[in-house]
Each structure stands twice: as C-alpha cells, then as structure tokens.
Design a protein around this nucleic acid. Structure first.
Lengths: 204, 204
DNA sequence: TGAATGACAGATATTGACTTCTGTCATTTC
DNA sequence: GAAATGACAGAAGTCAATATCTGTCATTCA
C-alpha cells in the first residue's frame, strides 16, 4: 500500500486540478496520473474511461451549485420570497463563476456539454427543489397553481436566459437585470401570487 | 454593361447559394464571384468586406423569419389568441428550418453568431411586434399590464428555450411541447389574461 | 470615365508526416 | 493475490511546410 490509497475521490481532486491548469482540450489521463504519482493504468482501475472521469468531475461541480440552493428551498419564509431568493442565488452563483474565472467556467461548461445525462439529473434536481417551493406556496395559499411540478418546470424554463450557460455571453449586458425583473414579475403573477389576492369565489 | 448588371441583390443571391452548397466554413468570396462569372474584386465594389456580405445574407434570412410574423401581429382577433398564434408561428418556423435542413440551419446560425448587431435589430423588431399585441390587449382589457414593452420583452425572453437557436438541440425532446404549454400558460396568466377576470375593485 | 480585372502582400487554412493519447492486458510488485 | 505497472495498437492531436484566401489598387476594358 502507498502513502495514501488511490481512491476515486483523490483522482477526482487531481482531475479537477489538471483541468483547471490545462483546460478541457489539453488535460489528459496521463496528466492526472502524473499529478497523483501513479501510472495512467491505475486511473483506469477506478474509472472505466476518460469520459466517465470527466462526467464525475462535472457531477461534482454541479453538486456544488445545487447543494446550497437546497438550503434556500427548504428554508423559512413566504414561498414568493423564497422563490425569489432561490432564483437570485442560482443566477448569482452562475454569474459569479462565469465572472470570477471565465476560463474555468468555460472548462466546466465544455465538460457539461458532453455529460448530457449528468446535466439532465442536475436539472431534475433543481426543478425538484423549485417544486417544493411552489407546492408549499400552493398549500399555504401564497400561490394558486394546479400542478406545482409543471409550474416549477415552467419557471425554470422561462428563466433559462439568466442561468443557462448557453446564454453566458448575455450576462454582461447592462439590461440583464431589468430583463430578469420583467420575467420574474410576469412569472410571479402567473403563479397567482397577487398582492392581496381577491378571494376567488366569494359571491356578494 | 454586362448581361445583367452586378448588383448587391444578385451578389446576395449567389452568396446564399454558395453558402448553401459549401457551408460557412468553406464558402469564399472567390466562390461567390465565380458563381456570378466575375472577379472577386468586383464583389468588393458592392460589399466592403466578407463580413459585411455575410451580415447582409444573415439580415435577409432573419427578414424571411420576421416578415410573416408581422402579419400575425397586425392581424385580427383577441390579443391572447394572437399572442399564441404569433409564438406558435415563431417556434414552428424555427423548428421547421432546423428540422428540414439541419445543415443549412447550422450555416445560418453560424453566420448569425458573428452578426451581433444584425441579430440585435432582429430581436428588437420581434419584440416590437410582440409589444403591439400586448399593448392592444391592454387597451382592450384583455391583458392587464403596466408596461406593454417590458411585458413583451419578458415574454420573448421567457420563451427563448423554444425559439432561440442556442437551444435547437432541445427541440427534438419529446417533452418540449408540454414545456411550451407550461411556460405559455404561466405567461398568459402573468399578463393578467384571466378567464372571466373578476372586476378589480368592485366593493360589495 | 466608370466598372471590372487580376497581380500582389499579408493573413488564414490545409495537409500529411510525426507525436501523443486512450484503453488493454500480460507481467511485476509488495 | 490484489493493486500497480508499462508496453502496445489504434485513434486522435500537433505542427510546419504549403496552398488558398482576403482585401487593395494600378491597370485595362468598353
């Protein structure tokens, strides 16, 4: 046995470091093995292919995005405010990643493009979080929706411009904040979150 | 003077044909000139650069998308239905272009990516059309919105997944129709298009 | 004399020989 | 004997020589 046993965890750590330094185009399995002081054959004992390793790195990254949001979704407060906090945080997280280190962000986006199934699961996890917010809001009468899951999915789809990396180039637009406000206001109203909603069926 | 005079129009025609045949990566100004039976220097008399020629081709293509929509926007009928028809048509047009000839569609999308100003004007033209629909709806009491232009822009942004070519890969998803319905329903309600809206301030 | 040409310089793209990488597996190590 | 190694074949990527393209402009053409 060696200093520290070779584990998937250590390999992922090294793979992230290698990707950070060399980018997705240049990072090789040999680089990852070298960073760990082992032969590249050893890496293949823990990951069946380079694609699987990249998928695992992507999953880790996406997990770091979605985990903090789960706390917001499960947190206290009225559903409309929580929805706003949750979307704000999602948008701010993506923007910060993109702004603080554009190259690293581009690296992870490039990985994600090839990890379709991982991304699908990530989107499903996020919409599940949104669904809990919408469903609670509906239960409390803060929202009026028939199908919370469908509404949550619609909210996620409709706000894609502000969190989907395919639109990252637009995040620097000066009008992006106003555009988000416009969409959010429309969605909030669409969820039936009227300010002091008139009681639905109270015949005089 | 020649058979037919060399005009910007004829050059655009030839450029489209060359792009169709060779794709954006291989199409050259020399090819366009050859298709017209002139030297490439002559093309430069009408377009200052290859980029300008490509921009003009892009503008033409986008015009063919937006022109028929103008008729829908200016057409008859209740604003909510017109909004639905307009969006349906926009989405269907993009999908048809993408589906019927994916390579040609990819060609034009590649051109559009480099023609930022042309695309900006196209988006502005489309949101202007949407604004007329929303504003008319507001005037007739079919919608309840404060700022029709902002609401129109929000509708355009929120439906991006269904018409923005950046999302073209998702258009083949089986769930895309349901996703559109979900977003549209949310937006319609967000525009205040309640079915038999309760009169806002009628104290009993 | 205004439109078209084609030779040209610098920039960009292509090609093919060469290098490196991925994934496997018989052999070695501890 | 479980884990690690490293040589290997085929696939993929690199790079510099070579070819083509863009944009200009002095000259030709009608």
């Amino acid at each position: 046995m060696n200093e520290a046993a070779l584990t998937p965890e250590r390999i992922l750590e090294a793979a992230e470091e290698v990707l950070r330094r060399f980018g997705p185009a240049k990072a090789t399995v040999v680089d990852v093995a070298r960073a760990l002081g082992v032969s590249h054959g050893s890496v293949y004992r823990h990951f069946p292919s380079k694609a699987a390793l990249r998928d695992a790195v992507t999953e880790r990254w996406l997990g770091r995005v979605s985990a903090p949001l789960a706390a917001v979704a499960a947190g206290p407060g009225p559903a409309p405010e929580r929805l706003r906090r949750w979307l704000d945080r999602l948008v701010a997280t993506k923007r910060a990643l993109q702004h603080d280190d554009p190259e690293l962000f581009a690296t992870y986006v490039a990985l994600a493009i090839d990890a379709r199934e991982v991304v699908r699961a990530h989107v499903e996890a996020l919409t599940a979080q949104l669904t809990t917010i919408v469903a609670e809001g509906a239960a409390r009468g803060e929202f009026r929706v028939d199908d919370p899951a469908a509404a949550a999915r619609a909210v996620f789809d409709a706000t894609g411009r502000f969190h989907n990396p395919a639109h990252a180039a637009e995040w620097a637009d000066p009008g992006i904040g106003a555009a988000f406000e416009g969409v959010f206001a429309l969605l909030l109203r669409g969820l039936g979150a009227g300010p002091a909603a008139p009681p639905p069926a109270a015949p005089c």
